[in-house]
Amino acid sequence: MAKIAMMIDTSKCIGCKACQIACQQWHSKPAEDTSFTGSYQNPEDLSGASLNVVKFIEVGNNGDLRWLFFPDRCRQCVDPYCKDACPLGAIKQHRMGFSGVNEARCDPSKCQMECQTACPFKTGSPTPMGIPRVGYMKDGELQDTKAQKCDFCYDRIFNPTLRGADDSAGIPNFDGEFVNSRRPACELSCPTGAIRAGYAEQIISWAKARIRYLKNNGYPNATGYPGLYTHVVWVLTEDRSVYGL
């Protein structure tokens, strides 16, 4: 079966956080405690309530100043390390490639968060952690959750109660300009079209074309991230080190 993928084009991202709240809303996650700490970025990192957090990075100075936005979330590995590591078998991979936590099986009290330890993509500071997260702060108290990470909105993209473009094929047509509610919440809410989901081959070829275009049009350091082994790919306007990746 054809695999699907998602591309996040940071050259089009305006840091509006629509995708961040849409993700939180679709997954019925509550707001967590935050405070202003000197950046537009809030909450500061992924958590049991925030599966997608837009990171704000200021680099350069004066005429060379750039303000970069990076919607940070699970990379959706082709071979998810988290899935292999989970002793309870709580992380499931769909045959179209993406993975999600089966909350009925997940029980953080019975494991050592092996998924988090195994995940090679560490985010946050001062102690970077793997992406699946447990818990969040609410009204000053730590709230328990199951492990949480992006699930590619599987319950949107296959949801027959949402309006799809190509119902007979059982999967949505991601590529059209037309109304299509069966897109992932983050893609649907993005005002600039920075997030696009679709068949992996199509998405990867768009991402490559976009990087080539950007390199020749004002972004000589444009690059892809992370590489070939994930179902979510970012088009970055700067070298990944600039993003702290």
């Binding site: 509006c16 709240i21 939180q24 509550p30 707001a31 935050t34 405070s35 202003f36 537009y40 809030n42």
Partner: peptide, 23 residues
């Protein structure tokens, strides 16, 4: 700010909006 709307009387009553731009 993007995260709030106008005098905030609507968005400051929405926990998600407060969370992303709390102060």
């Amino acid at each position: 700010l993007t995260e709030h709307w106008h005098t905030g009387s609507m968005t400051r009553n929405l926990p998600w909006c407060n969370q992303v731009q709390p102060e």
